[in-house]
Design a binder for these strands. Structure first.
Ligand SMILES: [Zn+2]
Ligand SMILES: [Zn+2]
Ligand SMILES: [Zn+2]
Ligand SMILES: [Zn+2]
Lengths: 543, 543
DNA sequence: TTAGGTTCACCGTGTTCA
DNA sequence: TGAACACGGTGAACCTAA
C-alpha cells in the first residue's frame, strides 16, 4: 500500500540545501547588520521588528518561554519556513502558503523516509497500527451526509467557471459544489491532472478537515453552518480575476514596480571603492591643515564661552558646528557648498567696494563679500566635495541601495522564493504556490463567513480548513498515499497551515484580519481581534 | 451527555486571576526595563532572554516571523502557561507538566464555555456534528485488539504491583498491562477513586493517544515495537519503588536521585570546556609578542613618568593602555577596530603622499595615514576579534548570564508555583502536578526506549504519549466528558503536552535530553539531539 | 588593572523641498 | 535660499573577562 512511494522531486535535497543556505544568509546578514548597525534597537526599527516587541514578547519570562516553545516549533517548521518568510514582500501573494506546502512536503517525506528505514510497513513494527482504511471516513460514514467522495479522478475533476457565481447562488451540497467549482489549472505540481491513483475509496468530510486545527478546538464542534449560503463567492476586487499563472502575474506586476530612474546597473556596480572615497580621504593639504589647526585653536579658546563658539563666523547667526573648516551657520554652509560645487563663486561680483558688511539680515545682498568672508572665516574650497567625490559617494550609496532593491526584486521575481534556490526547486515550489492560490480561489468564502462575530468566525475557520485540505489533497503525490497516511498528513498540515495562515494574515497595525498588501487578503472576510477574543475563554491572553 | 458538566474547581476564575496577575507583572517590569535600559539587548540580557538569541532568533526577519507565529502560539497557551513557567527552577519537578495540566484545563473549559454560550449542544448550531459515540473507538473497534476498555471503574482500577516486573518480563497486551500496572493513589484530584461516571462505553487505544503529537508525526506510524519488550518496566531506580504520595515523594525522592545507570552521563554534563580555547585563537605571534613586550618595557620604564607612557603612539593623545599591540588612545583604538572589523582599511586612500602627520587635531583627516601609523605603532590587525570570535564571545557571555539567572530563580522556588498564587489554586495545581508525577512514574520507560537511536526514540515517543494520555485520563473531571469530548481533548492535550515536555526537558547546554535538575529527568531515557536529527528529513533545522 | 567589545550621542558631509 | 533630513564616521563612556 505504501511501498512504492517515489516523490516527484528530491525533497530532502531541496530542503537540506535550502536550509543550509538559509542559515548562511542568516548568519551573514546577521554579521553585516552587527558590523554596520551596532544598535540592536536600530536594527529592529529598520526591520519593522519593533512592533512585535510587545510586553509579552520582551518580558523576561514570557519572552523566554516564548522562544523556548518557539525553538520547538522551529523544529517542526524548520529553517526553511524562516527562509521562505525572509522574502515575503507585502505584494507577493501566497508566500505564506508556501510555508504550508513546504511543511507538507516535509512531513510527508519525513514520514516516508522513516518508514523506509524500517521494515517498510507499519505493521511490521508490531504496533497496533491504524487500519488501512482510515477511520476518518469509517467514523463518519454512518452519518452519510456531507462527505466528499473523491473516488476517482472523474469525481475530482473540474470545470473552471463557477467561481464567478453571484453571492445569491442557491445552496448546493458542498460535495457537488466542490467537485464542480474547481479551477482548471494548475492542478498539480507537474501540471498533470490529479488522479486518485491506487486509492480505492476516498472520502473526506468536513470533519476530517477540521481535525487539524486543534488549536482552535473550541471552534471545532461549533463550526459550520454548512447548510446556509455556503456557496457564495467572495466579494472584493480580487474575486473577479481569472486565474493567472503566478509567473505571468509576477512579470506584469513587476513592470510597474521598479522606477526606471533607479540608476543603470553598470553605474551601480562599477564603483569598487565604497568607503575610501568618502568624505575624509581627500582631506586638506598641509596648508589647510594649518588653517584647520588654527580653527581649532580659535574655536577652542572661546569654547568656554559657548555663546561665542556657536556663532557663525560669517553672518553671526547661530551655528551648530564647524563646516568646511570654519564655524558657520546652516545657511552659510549651504551657500558656501553651493557656490563651490557650481563654481559660481568664480563669477561673484561685488556691487560695492568688496567690503560689504555681512549680517544675518543682509547676507543675501552681496554674494561676493559673503563668500570672501567665508574664506576668511577659515572655510576651505577644497573641503567641499568635488564632483568626483560626490560621484563616488553617490555611487556607493546607490550601489548599496541598489543591492537591497535588487535583492528585493529578485525575491519578487522568484515569487517570494529565495533566489539562492535551485531553479528546479524553485519551480516546484512555485507550482505548489500556484496550486495553492488557485485552490484557495476556487472555494469562495461563503456568505456566512462575513459579519465579524463569533459565529461567522467559526464558519470562516471551517472554510479555511476546507481550502487547506483541498490544497493538500491536490498535491499530486498526496494521491499515492493510503488513506491512513493521508489523514495523518491532513491533520498535521491543516493544523499548522491554519496557524501560519492566520499569523501571516494578521494586520497587527489595526488588530484585525486580514492584513493588506496581499492579493488573497482582498477576499478574506474581515475579522477583528476582538471577535477572536470572544472566541476564547481567555481574553486576557491577548496582551 | 454534555449538559451536566460541573468542574471540580473554578477553573475560569483561577485562570483569569492568574493571567491578570501575570500581565500586571509583565507590564510593570516591562515598563521599568524600558525606562531604565534603553538598550533592547540589555533588557534581553538581563531578562535571561538572550540565551535564545540565536542568529535566527535575532535576525530581523526570521525573528519577526518567529514572534509572529509565537503570538499565535501564545494565544493557544495563554499567559497562564507563561506565568507557570516563570518559576521553573531547575530543581523543582513537574513544573513543565503543570503547563500541561493548565492547558488541559483551559481547553476543556474553553470548549465547554463555548458550547454553553450556544444552544448548549453542538447540534443546535446546525453543524454536521460529531457522533456522540466517538469515532475514535468506532474506527478501531474493528480491529478488536489493543484497545483499552475503560467501561467501568472496575476496569480502570488498578492493582499496584506489577511495576516491579523485571525487564525480561514477557510480553503482554498493552491493554492488560496498562490496566494492571497502575498506581493506586492518588487517582484523581480529590483523592477519590476515578470512576467513569456516566460514560457507558469507552475505549482508548494507543492510536488514540498518538493522534495528538502531530508535530512528531514522522514517528507516528513507525513508533512502537510493542511486540518486543514493551512491557518491561524502566530500568531506572524509580521503576522499582512503590508508589508514594507525591507530596511525600518530593521530600524523599531526592535521596536516591542519581540512578547508577544514568550517572555515567553526568560526565558528559560536567565538561563544557568549550570556552577558553576560542578567545585565544587569535593571539599574537611570537614576533608580535616580542614587539608587545617591548612596548610593555617601554611603558614600564617611563612608568614613573606617567606622562610618557600615557601617550598615544599614533596621535599623541593621552592613552590609558595598550591596544591591539600598541599604545593607543581610546579613539585610535576604536578607529583601528572599526577599520579592521568592517574591512574598510583596505580601501583607505591618502589624498597626499602617504606621509601625513597625525596629531590629535588632524587625526580625522587622513584615514590611510592614521591606519598606517597605527600599524607602525605595533597594532596588529590580527588582534582584532573576527566575527566568529565575537560570536563565541557573545555566546559564552550569554550562557553565563543564563546560568546566573537560573540560580536566582532557584531561590524563588515555591513548589514550582508562583507564590502570588491563591493558596487554593495552588493546591489544585499541586494536586494536578502530583497526579501527573505519579502517573508518569507508574508507566516505566520500557527497555526499548533506551539506546539513543531512531528506533528507541520512536518508542520513547510512544511511551510519553501513553503517559500523557493516562494522566489526562485520570484527571477527575475528564471522566464526566463524553467520549467525543474526551478524544478531542486528548488530541489537543497530548500534542501540546509532548511539545512542552520535550521543550522543558531539553538540555540545551549539551544538546540532549533530558535536562538535569529534575527528578523525572533521571528516569527519562537519554536522547541526543543528533538522534532527533536523524528523525527528520531536515537535520539542518537544528541550528 | 588591562584590554578586549559595545553603545550612543554627536558631527559634518550631502540632499530635498517648500 | 535655508530648514530639515539621511547617512556614515567618531570617540567618550561603558561592560566584561582575565
Ligand atoms: Zn552664517
Ligand atoms: Zn560686497
Ligand atoms: Zn590616538
Ligand atoms: Zn595621508
Amino acid at each position: 500500500m505504501t511501498g512504492d512511494y517515489t516523490p516527484g522531486w528530491d525533497t530532502t535535497r531541496v530542503l537540506a540545501t535550502w536550509s543550509k543556505r538559509a542559515r548562511d544568509v542568516n548568519y551573514s546578514s546577521q554579521r553585516s547588520e552587527f558590523a554596520k548597525q551596532p544598535s540592536v534597537k536600530r536594527i529592529l526599527k529598520q526591520a519593522n521588528f519593533d512592533h512585535y516587541l510587545t510586553p509579552s514578547a520582551t518580558h523576561p519570562v514570557t519572552g523566554r518561554v516564548a522562544l523556548l516553545t518557539l525553538s520547538f516549533l522551529a523544529h517542526a517548521l524548520g529553517d526553511t519556513a524562516h527562509e521562505v518568510s525572509t522574502v515575503r514582500p507585502p505584494g507577493v501573494p501566497c508566500t505564506h502558503l508556501l510555508l504550508v506546502a513546504v511543511w507538507y512536503m516535509m512531513s510527508k517525506d519525513a514520514y516516508y523516509q522513516y518508514r523506509a528505514e524500517d521494515t517498510g510497513s507499519v505493521d511490521g513494527l508490531g504496533l497496533p497500527s491504524l487500519p488501512n482504511t482510515s477511520y476518518w471516513y469509517d467514523a463518519h460514514s454512518s452519518m452519510g451526509s456531507s462527505l466528499y467522495p473523491v473516488t476517482s479522478a472523474q469525481d475530482y475533476v473540474i470545470q473552471n467557471n463557477e467561481s464567478q457565481l453571484p453571492i445569491s447562488e442557491s445552496y448546493r451540497e458542498p460535495m457537488d459544489w466542490w467537485a464542480e467549482n474547481d479551477v482548471s489549472a494548475p492542478r498539480n505540481l507537474t501540471g498533470n491532472l490529479c488522479s486518485i491513483g491506487g486509492v480505492d475509496q476516498g472520502y473526506l468530510s468536513t470533519d476530517d478537515l477540521m481535525c487539524g486545527p486543534s488549536e482552535f478546538e473550541p471552534a471545532g464542534p461549533a463550526m459550520g453552518m454548512l447548510g446556509n449560503g455556503f456557496v457564495g463567492p467572495a466579494p472584493g476586487p480580487g474575486g473577479e480575476r481569472e486565474y493567472v499563472s503566478p509567473m505571468e502575474d509576477m512579470a506584469t506586476d513587476e513592470s510597474l514596480t521598479p522606477s526606471p530612474q533607479s540608476l543603470p546597473e553598470d553605474s551601480a556596480f562599477a564603483s569598487p571603492a565604497r568607503k575610501g572615497a568618502a568624505s575624509d580621504t581627500r582631506r586638506p593639504s598641509p596648508v589647510q591643515e594649518q588653517s584647520a589647526k588654527e580653527q581649532k585653536k580659535q574655536k577652542k579658546e572661546p569654547k568656554e564661552k559657548v555663546k561665542e563658539s556657536k556663532k557663525c563666523g560669517v553672518c553671526g547667526d547661530t551655528a551648530r558646528s564647524m563646516h568646511f573648516g570654519g564655524m558657520a551657520c546652516d545657511s552659510c554652509k549651504a551657500f558656501f557648498r553651493r557656490s563651490v560645487q557650481s563654481g559660481a563663486y568664480k563669477s561673484f561680483q561685488c556691487p560695492e567696494n568688496e567690503n560689504c558688511p555681512i549680517s544675518k539680515q543682509n547676507r543675501k545682498v552681496c554674494q561676493y563679500c559673503r563668500f570672501k568672508k567665508s574664506q576668511e572665516n577659515g572655510m576651505e574650497i577644497s573641503w567641499v566635495m568635488s564632483e568626483t567625490d560626490r560621484m563616488v559617494l553617490w555611487k556607493n550609496r546607490l550601489a548599496k541601495q541598489r543591492q537591497e532593491q535588487e535583492d528585493k526584486l529578485k525575491d519578487v521575481a522568484y515569487g517570494g522564493l529565495p533566489h539562492t534556490l535551485d531553479p528546479d526547486d524553485a519551480d516546484t515550489l512555485r507550482n505548489l504556490a500556484a496550486l495553492q492560490e488557485a485552490t484557495f480561489k476556487s472555494i469562495p468564502y461563503p456568505e456566512d463567513c462575513y459579519g465579524d462575530n463569533v459565529e461567522t468566525l467559526a464558519n470562516l475557520f471551517v472554510c479555511i480548513c476546507k481550502k487547506l485540505g483541498l490544497f493538500f489533497y491536490r498535491v499530486e503525490d498526496f494521491q499515492y498515499l493510503c488513506k491512513t497516511d493521508q489523514s495523518l498528513l491532513l491533520k498535521n498540515g491543516i493544523g499548522m497551515g491554519i496557524y501560519l495562515h492566520g499569523a501571516y494574515m494578521f494586520d497587527h497595525e489595526n488588530e484585525r484580519w486580514p492584513a493588506e498588501g496581499n492579493k488573497e487578503a482582498l477576499m478574506i472576510p474581515p475579522v477583528s481581534l476582538d471577535t477572536l477574543r470572544k472566541f476564547t475563554v481567555f481574553p486576557e491572553a491577548f496582551e
